[in-house]
Amino acid sequence: MAHDHDHEHGHDHSHQPHPFQPDLEETPLTHYQVMTQAVGDLLVEKGVFSAEELRAMVEAIDAKSQAAGARMVAHAWADPAFKARMLEDVNKAAEELDIDAGGIPIRAVENTEGVHNVIVCTLCSCYPRLLIGLPPDWYKSRSYRSRTVREPRQVLAEFGTTLPDDVEVRVHDSTADLRYMVLPARPAGTEGWDEEALAELVTRDCMIGVTLPKSPNA
């Protein structure tokens, strides 16, 4: 909620009006926004978690982006031994770079000259969020979830990614227990680049597999 009244806890909750932000208070709440506020408040009052923990978690979620994943990809491009370890076990390889990939196993699938990978979660929205941030809306949409497993080339084309016919497209359907990230192929023309510069080419969408990394000439 934009008006965060977690700071009020610790005293009687029966209820002075909250200090509202004038621009927000003119907008009606939805039923589920009210539920969200109420459930969070009740859990704080019951001591399930503290208001500080809740606030810190929101901040941590906000801070996640594709940066951690991009750093891993760039390191894998620069260091073949690391790449091999990453393909073996993403979560463990992440630790080498002080990246927390979480407790759910993530598998990296490597794009090569002959193979292009793309990830989807047909059942819901499983996604390597600790490495590449919160999923975009379209990843959770009915159209992406339905069509990617049946007509991946058409879906990729909608993202502007047209692959030659002789490139095999592999679609990976994530689950609550196993997630995927795409390890894109290193773009030609980046010989001698340092990892920081390489990481700049690695977008969220190319780690989902709907696009290729940015062009080094762009």
Partner: peptide
């Protein structure tokens, strides 16, 4: 109803909020 893999559907709306 949640199991929608492979079913027909429209174009992927790429807008994000």
């Amino acid at each position: 109803h949640h199991d929608m893999g492979g079913l027909p559907a429209g174009p992927v709306e790429q807008g994000e909020h």
